[in-house]
């Protein structure tokens, strides 16, 4: 296929219909899906992230680009899986016990999906036990926790402690985020990382998965 650059543009502008069509055409034409992902889609998402950090893009632009990525990856993933390729990582995500706010958590989940992670979303008000069960059953290497309230933030610590008590702490990396959360708090409770927004969360998840 002559013009894979169109794929880059489709992701950058968040055109999910175009992303899906171009992906299908490319696959029909025998383009290596890995090439499409590595040379067009990931760089496009990188540019989206750069524009977000530079305040040229805002949350809506992040979301539509992530959605376009997801639409394309849905076609590509089965092919990669058939070759034995694993997703970028498997993440269990949820808003912690006592907290019902899900906008931040949903943004991070959407961005992680767009970045090729397999996301297991446990929803809101998630108990430590639910996190542990999901980790064990789905063999996830990452846990992402969100809290909006200072009053519910402590559930993050409870969950980190429960994961340790369950004997699986060395099998997972834990990342946290939410309005009141800071790097200092992440250090205090023994989480592996903190990010202040959904775009930074993707870079953090990649870093933790590679570690």
């Amino acid at each position: 296929m002559e013009d894979l650059k169109k794929m880059y543009d489709a992701i950058l502008t968040g055109n999910f219909k175009a992303a899906r069509e171009i992906t299908q055409q490319a696959l029909d034409a025998g383009v290596d899906p890995q090439v499409l992902v590595q040379e067009q889609m990931i760089p496009a998402m990188g540019e989206v992230g750069r524009r977000y950090e530079a305040n040229e893009y805002f949350v809506p632009e992040l979301l539509i680009s992530a959605r376009a990525m997801k639409a394309s990856l849905e076609l590509i993933r089965p092919l990669l899986a058939a070759r034995g390729a694993e997703p970028a990582g498997r993440v269990v995500i949820g808003t912690v016990k006592g907290d019902l706010h899900d906008i931040g958590k949903n943004l991070v989940a959407a961005m992680l999906e767009g970045a090729g992670f397999e996301v297991i979303d446990l929803g809101v008000d998630v108990t430590p036990e639910k996190f542990i069960t999901a980790l064990n059953e789905r063999h996830a290497g990452l846990v992402a926790m969100s809290a909006l309230l200072t009053t519910t933030m402590n559930s993050m610590k409870t969950t980190v402690d429960a994961i340790a008590a369950a004997g699986v702490r060395n099998k997972v990396k834990i990342m946290i985020g939410g309005a009141p959360v800071t790097q200092k708090y992440a250090d205090e409770i023994g989480a592996d990382g903190y990010s202040s927004n959904a775009n930074a969360a993707v870079a953090l998840a990649r870093k933790l998965s590679a570690a």
Binding site: N55, Y57, F58, V59, P60, E61
Partner: peptide, 12 residues
């Protein structure tokens, strides 16, 4: 509360 100058809404 968003943007470089904190003069945008979350959605920009």
């Amino acid at each position: 509360d968003s943007g470089k100058n904190k003069d945008r809404t979350m959605m920009g």
